[in-house]
Simulated assay, not measured.
Amino acid sequence: MEAQVKWLGEELFMGTSESGHTMVLDANGGNLAPSPMEAVLISLGGCSSVDVVSILQKARQSIIGCHVDISGTRVDSVPALFEKIHLHFVITGADVAAKHVERAVNLSADKYCSVALMLNAKVDITHDFEIVAS
């Protein structure tokens, strides 16, 4: 896998993935686009959500929605690494079993989400979930 990041001027950068997709990053606190650290949170949430939805679909759960609220705290030194990240999954559907959601979230965190597994060495990642009946 390969990627390229190009400086656009000021504090804006454009990342281009091997598949040709682009993403603008803003080093100025995310004023015009996500900052690189915000992109890490989004990547973690995206990776985890893909797993959770896939696992719930395979378990034949009638889900119609999934979103994850992600909060991260960073250390007060340079570099300002993430110290803790919490993912709160909100699953919407009819008759969705909590045991299946719990299993899906745990499998993503412990086995499948590459982003979470990379971050786990340095970051305390926690998660929980809620189910909203549709």
Rank of each mutant, 00 (worst) to 15 (best):
M1K: 03
L8S: 06
M14C: 09
M14K: 09
E18S: 15
E18A: 11
G20F: 02
G20P: 08
G20T: 04
T22A: 05
L25R: 05
L25P: 08
G30T: 11
A33W: 02
P34T: 06
E38W: 07
E38F: 02
V40C: 09
I42P: 03
S43F: 12
G45R: 07
G45T: 10
G46H: 04
G46T: 07
C47D: 08
S49R: 04
V50S: 13
D51N: 08
Q57F: 01
K58Q: 09
A59F: 03
I63F: 06
I64D: 15
I64A: 13
G65T: 14
G65C: 12
G65K: 09
C66L: 15
H67K: 15
S71R: 14
D76P: 12
S77R: 09
P79D: 10
A80L: 01
L81Y: 07
F82W: 02
F82M: 06
E83K: 13
E83C: 03
H86S: 14
H88T: 09
G93K: 07
A94K: 14
V96P: 07
V96K: 04
V96E: 05
A98P: 07
H100I: 01
N106I: 00
A109Y: 00
D110Y: 02
Y112G: 10
C113M: 01
V115K: 01
L117N: 14
L117K: 15
N120T: 05
N120D: 15
V132A: 04
S134G: 12
